[in-house]
Design a protein around this nucleic acid. Structure first.
Lengths: 333, 333
DNA sequence: ATTTGTTTGGCAACCGCTTGCCAAAAGTTG
DNA sequence: CAACTTTTGGCAAGCGGTTGCCAAACAAAT
């Protein structure tokens, strides 16, 4: 039979150390509350019994679970890896456990999973898209929420500051002689999509370029592929896509159609996902500090656990930057 | 102030329904134990109060946490995505929560994290490499363990059956006229590495080919890159690498050195990771049913929760297969 | 009608830890 | 040395469920 001896409890320690269980609890959780000598005695007994606090027993009276949920739309989306890693590391560092849940891009699954998980966590990091602003606000009433890919009034967030990366990218294209560029848009409802487009437009106009929006596409390889015809029709020499996946789809479709990148067409993606340098040529992209964002999301949550008020917090702008690789080049004359 | 009204408890329900709390507990957890009418009344009251069982309160007396830990060496390793997704989906389906933890390829972190997480989970899925067989056996004494990337005596596992994919691959190379091939090995201590090499060698010899082992490399892009010189020195026309990452590194290094793939050298990887089709040419690879393995690992764990004995279980062999893409071609004359 | 068996639901102890309250012990102060 | 303050550690009541045990209520069998 497995697990012969049950785990030691504070009662075992108390008996061994010859004190009351409450003293053990205090010695272990409230340094200073108990006489140093007694505390040492308790700690010694605890070590001897290989004591591990039972997180459930502790969570019951305190209501604190030391667990954070990270909900993502799709675990296999490479954008989330680094985000999750950053969060996991930051959480582990302070003794918190990270639960990750996937909504599979379904609002039903998203709500159901949240329902199930909510009682057992102290807070939630949301990297999903299906919930409405109202639902998120409502959720935020129950447990602290931090958003990593959108903004909602009254809710904390840690989102990348797209502007520096975009400014760099547009400048880079202008320097290469591009006059007419396009943006292959992602989901219309996406906050990030709108943010990227706005910055892009502003910067392009400022540098005297024209910029066309190739409207709403699936943010996937297919979506990028499907936008190629329209990019070509737009008659531009350079294009920025909503994300790397689309950029790669576009790049491959272009190559297949005999359009050489970057000679005939320059392409810039967003995110610097895993594999974006596997392509030929390797993709130039605007990099997001995703791991940092994940870590900061956890820190923000931690802060809100101890905050007096419910004031939403906003991540110190995480700066993006252009990663120049091989998919951008001089504009075709 | 957040969270004004506390969550409803079975006591609230009991009061509303006019029964004893124990009746509520039974009505909700042991269908049939209580009179159908009473049960309906309780359920109605529960719904009315929007009752959610407190997982911690439940875990205390039962010792069951309905949580499974999945420990991986490196979250950002694409091999783990699908594994984790499969596990997450399978867990969610039966109301279990998946906690994911990363050991960062460090045995210290691995032990520490395990220590921290163990008390709050019912079982562990291990996709790491740093623990010794003994440590894993010891762990298995405490909580059920399922391995997904190695085998340890007396411990359950769900590992891919490399043989069919490898047989296909070697046959494929033989059909293309290759006589001398090589295997770019991964970590020497890895069970999977050994398993792959053994099958490869057996199949190659059976088909009358020679096969060289390019010994132990880091299982990374760099590792693949670093093996190129030795592959070239081996004078082979085709090479199979320990994993896709290495295959891609090798492919890129070969291309950079003026060796054309697949004309001059055929390359086959393992795993079909995200992005392995981004390369030029797209990588031929032996695909693992990773998501299925992840799901089955959870199912195996679930079974062991209810098993009488501690007999280790072994996943119904998950079959691999060759995914032919562009990196394999006719052997150079 | 009496005995026996089965449902049904209440009682209360317990899971392991936290914490408010209190009294004894020890330390300060004039 | 009395009066007061601070430190220290014990007591016991929860936190929100689960479950063994038991008795009342009901059904079936004789």
């Amino acid at each position: 039979m497995r697990v012969n001896e049950k785990a030691a409890t504070i009662y075992d320690i108390a008996k061994l150390a010859g004190v009351n269980p409450s003293t053990v609890s205090r010695a272990l959780t409230t340094p200073g509350r108990i006489n140093a000598t007694t505390e040492a005695k308790v700690r010694e007994a605890a070590k001897q019994l290989n004591y591990r606090v039972n997180p459930f027993a502790r969570a019951l009276p305190t209501g604190k679970t030391k667990t954070i949920a990270f909900m993502v739309a799709d675990i296999t989306n490479p954008v989330f890896f680094k985000l999750v890693r950053g969060a996991e590391l930051a959480a582990a560092e302070v003794g918190y456990t990270l639960v990750i849940a996937e909504s599979q891009e379904s609002s039903l699954v998203e709500s159901a999973t949240l329902e199930r998980i909510l009682p057992s966590v102290d807070g939630v990091i949301l990297g999903t898209t299906r919930l409405s602003d109202e639902e998120i606000s409502a959720l935020n009433q129950q447990k602290p929420v931090v958003l990593v890919n959108r903004k909602v009034d009254g809710v904390s967030d840690v989102v990348p500051d797209n502007s520096p990366g975009i400014a760099e990218a547009v400048k880079h294209l202008a320097d290469l002689g591009h006059k007419h560029i396009a943006f292959v848009a992602g989901p219309a409802a996406s906050w990030i999509n709108t943010d990227r487009w706005n910055h892009l437009m502003k910067n392009a106009v400022e540098l005297g370029m024209t910029i066309a929006e190739i409207s709403s596409n699936e943010p996937t390889l297919e979506g990028g592929k499907g936008a190629f015809e329209r990019v070509r029709a737009a008659g531009v020499t350079a294009v920025v896509t909503y994300n790397d996946l689309m950029a790669i789809g576009l790049l491959r479709e272009a190559t297949a159609a005999g359009v050489t990148v970057p000679t005939d067409l320059s392409i810039i993606g967003f995110d610097n996902i895993f594999g974006s340098d596997f392509t030929n040529p390797p993709l130039s992209t605007i990099e997001m500090p995703l791991q940092k964002i994940g870590a900061e999301a956890v820190e923000t949550l931690l802060k809100s656990f101890v905050a007096e008020d419910d004031e939403p917090m906003h991540g110190t702008s995480e700066v993006t930057s252009l990663l120049m690789r091989g998919s951008t080049g001089k504009a075709k004359a």
